[in-house]
Design a protein around this nucleic acid. Structure first.
Lengths: 72, 72
DNA sequence: ACTTTAGGTTAAATATTATTAACATAGAGT
DNA sequence: ACTCTATGTTAATAATATTTAACCTAAAGT
């Protein structure tokens, strides 16, 4: 199990609430690769603010509704 | 004038609304350097989500109250 | 059994963000 | 005029995010 970063997200849940959207479809809308979406969902690393904003826009949620910062 | 990234912020304003906080003081609270704070304020690049969350916490504002994404 | 699709995972390369040190300017205070 | 303090700026480097390609498994459809 690889190390996780301290920022959690509910992208995976939101994908399924949005018509069974696949990682691939989300990636295309974001302009990133499928592996990047997978890595973000698994908290391998946190996305750039720009990608975070695009995700936020796609799901119609505020940044804070999607991402949460877990204090160490 | 160097290129600007598409994410705006009002960190500079918030610093002054918070007891004349300097870039140096903010940088120390964030655990980054003064130059990083200066670069972010001038939109040289957007901060990592983690740094963005720390800024958000220091000023007691949501991410969307501090950062805005400007559509191209 | 075969094929397709979704997703997990890894390694190596590239792009972007952040650090450090240095030098510059402008304003305030003495 | 001199001295701080805050800030802007640049170059080189380090750290992190993202890409690309590859291989793997599981589930569903045929």
């Amino acid at each position: 199990m690889a190390k996780q970063i301290p920022i959690d997200n509910n992208i995976k849940t939101l994908r399924f609430l949005t018509g069974e959207m696949t990682q691939q479809e989300l990636a295309e809308q974001l302009g990133v690769t499928r592996q990047t979406v997978a890595a973000i969902e698994q908290r391998k690393y946190s996305p750039s603010l720009e990608v975070a904003f695009k995700i936020s826009k796609i799901f119609g949620k505020s940044l804070n509704e999607i991402f949460t910062y877990e204090e160490s």
